[in-house]
Write a protein that binds this DNA or RNA. Structure first.
Lengths: 232, 232
DNA sequence: TGTTGGTCTTGATAATTATCAAGGCGACCG
DNA sequence: CGGTCGCCTTGATAATTATCAAGACCAACA
């Protein structure tokens, strides 16, 4: 086990402000593990045994009820997930599965809680991170309630456009069925929504999206920082 | 200005763990204010000037986009709202209006942030509170994506039933149009959903709800702690 | 006591979204 | 190279939800 994955953890905002001693205590029981694609890491409802830090690969968070399933988020490296369940010592609210081959650092939840009780810097960083997650989820909820599926897709594409550095052409970072579920619709509906957006300056070829007319898309999507700016 | 509202603030989980000194510093610039019904307290997008503590009355949190509006939550005393915006020093994501006559303690956000930086107890309490809010919002989002409107209403009624101490008859604590918006539907649709639930053991008379057959409602609603138990 | 304004309900209709079925396409693999 | 599998798309249809319009009800109030 090399030192580098732990260095990557250390550089995360969540762990950067804590003392070396507290970080060492946190990592004492932590370990790095690799997982194959499509492996279920977490089952919702289970007790939160580990704080997960994704080092490489992608992880999908999803939830189920009564045989239905919905994609809640995709986690990209390097970041943590299920922080809230860990600090509350409560069951996971979402399941997690690897999308591709992944490396994760697993930190025993009781260690995370113990260090949280002792290290002020860690506690402060957790506040910042949880506030960010909370606000992000509020935005998701607003988007679901205030917009129809075409509008959600249009704004999703604009956000992806921003993340890709405003190159007019970019790749969807997940399969369409996953994107559909994330946006709260069926794959069929997503397909038709893409067709509808052709009239608003969007071209799609496989997983490659081209924003032909950004202004036209903007005037249709009406993005709003209170729904679409996930940075704060 | 009597001392009692500040005592009520002190007893909130969020403020109970901090030092007397830190609490005093926090309250130095705080003040109690009364507001009439239907008054807009906060406009989404505005900078977060004050951490709000509701002492009496009810406050509705809501959001708008493109002329549409949706109810996000109803705040009951004694509790805080817009904590996340305050700690992140970010714009409010939701607007707030009084439902009835309200008394609020307003704590300058910069004081809250300053004390948060200094007082470990306060920081820890914020973590707990934010994690609770975050998980609550995740549940809302899951409910919106995994359930149709009748199922959302059925489970909402079961939650209200629990809150009322399982008395079979209880009052809706908000106008139906507000409940409808909170649950992500129109008032007309809510009205029809209530009619549909008659077949599953629910009787409605004005704002008074009677659960005639709890088991029948349970078998229709299929409540799940991962969606409906807002306590942790 | 009549008026007024709001909410709630109901019916009719439209829009949105989901479901079902079939076929196309591409990747992977024997 | 042919076959198989999964994903995506399209069409047809159904279910869900929203919109529009009208009327009932109720509380506040002059």
């Amino acid at each position: 086990m090399t030192d580098s994955p732990f260095a990557a953890v250390r550089h995360l905002d969540l762990f950067a402000q804590m003392s070396d001693e507290a970080f060492a205590r946190l990592m004492r029981g932590a370990y790095l593990q690799s997982f194959p694609p499509q492996l279920q890491l977490i089952t919702e409802g289970d007790p939160s045994d580990f704080l997960h830090v994704l080092i490489s690969g992608r992880v999908e968070l999803y939830s189920s009820w009564d045989g239905r399933e919905t994609s809640m988020a995709t986690v990209h490296p390097v970041s943590t997930f299920i922080l809230a369940a860990t600090v509350r010592d409560a069951p996971y609210l979402m399941s997690a599965r690897t999308v591709e081959k992944c490396r994760l650092v697993l930190i025993p939840s009781q260690d995370a809680r113990a260090v949280f009780e002792q290290d002020f810097g860690f506690a402060k960083a957790i506040v910042t991170e949880l506030a960010r997650c909370y606000r992000s989820t509020i935005r998701t909820s607003k988007s679901l309630k205030l917009r129809n599926s075409q509008e959600r897709l249009a704004n999703y594409l604009l956000r992806q456009l921003g993340k890709s550095g405003n190159r007019t052409r970019f790749e969807l970072l997940a399969e369409k069925r996953r994107v559909a579920s994330y946006l709260g619709m069926t794959p069929e509906n997503l397909s038709r929504a893409f067709n509808a957006l052709k009239a608003h300056g969007v071209e799609i070829d496989g997983s490659s999206v081209t924003i032909v007319d950004r202004d036209k898309l903007l005037s249709f999507a009406r993005p709003n920082p209170l729904l679409d700016d996930y940075s704060n």
